[in-house]
Amino acid sequence: MTTTSSNRIVINTTINGEPIEFLADMRDSLLEALRERIGLRGAKEGCNNGNCGACSVMLNGRLVNSCCVMAAEIEGAEVTTIEGVASAEGLHPVQQAFLEEAALQCGICTPGFIVATKALLDEHPHPTEEEARFWLAGNLCRCTGYDKIIRAVLSAADTMAK
């Protein structure tokens, strides 16, 4: 991390497996840096204070709200965003399940839900409905009433178990 003049800093980090170096303002949150400096706009700003989960990303293997992380904190860290969930071969089973179960309407919450769901299934491959709802309680969806989202989560768990 190099501090330049004024409030700018150069940050070296790894995003979706790629080493990257970028210039940020010391005031930038990780969300702002991803969206406005780096151009990865899959993580969304729904509230900017930790209450909606639309900005969910993985930081060093852990689910976090990128609006509640300073950009400067990711120096030397590993970040995975929604853009890093699908592989060159195709969609991740969680993404496929969201499509098949119609688990999105407007889709603004979807990147956050998919990142959070992947984190859930990586840690608890066979969640109950209750566990899935509890894990995802920090991700707001206003369109679906969560029904189809939870079905997609449970169905992705089944697929991944096979």
Partner: peptide, 9 residues
């Protein structure tokens, strides 16, 4: 406290 993402930090 908070949700899963908050508890990550």
């Amino acid at each position: 406290i908070g949700g899963t993402a908050i508890q990550g930090r």
